[in-house]
Amino acid sequence: MSRERERVRKEIDRFRRDGDRARKENDKPRREVVTSPRTMAARHLRYTASREIDEQTRLGEVYMRSLVRTQFRLAMFVCTVLGCVVGGLPLLFLLVPQLREVQLLGIPLPWVVLAGLIYPAFVLGAWLYVRQAERNERHFAELVDGQ
């Protein structure tokens, strides 16, 4: 996850440098008479990240894509694990018939898993997901607000 963030940061820095250079070049040939001191203008030389997103610049797109990609990878990870467990169980019972007849405390293993253990496992998975998804959002907010 941190490597991904590092990569996004580098990409963003590159865009920013390019943007600053382009702006400087645009400014170069123009000469204007300063009629009033615009002290406020200097502060906006560098766009804030949220403004990049609002104006849908390419840099803003990079921010958004990094967020969506990170969240999507997390979602896909959970779905893959879920798919393996849920999709694997019928296959396991089919290929290893002995497993069907194993008894735990007098209850057949399929019942122990499907009518019991799988529910707390769902809740645990959901809890871990919520924690990580909120962490991703916090990182994104820091990336955008911290500029």
Partner: peptide
């Protein structure tokens, strides 16, 4: 019998899929 145990499992697990892909 046991094959039908998947029904409640799916009706609960559907919320896990909903949580990660759709909810927020």
């Amino acid at each position: 019998g046991a094959d039908m145990l998947w029904l409640p499992v799916g009706w609960t697990g559907g919320y896990l899929v909903l949580l990660v892909l759709v909810s927020a």
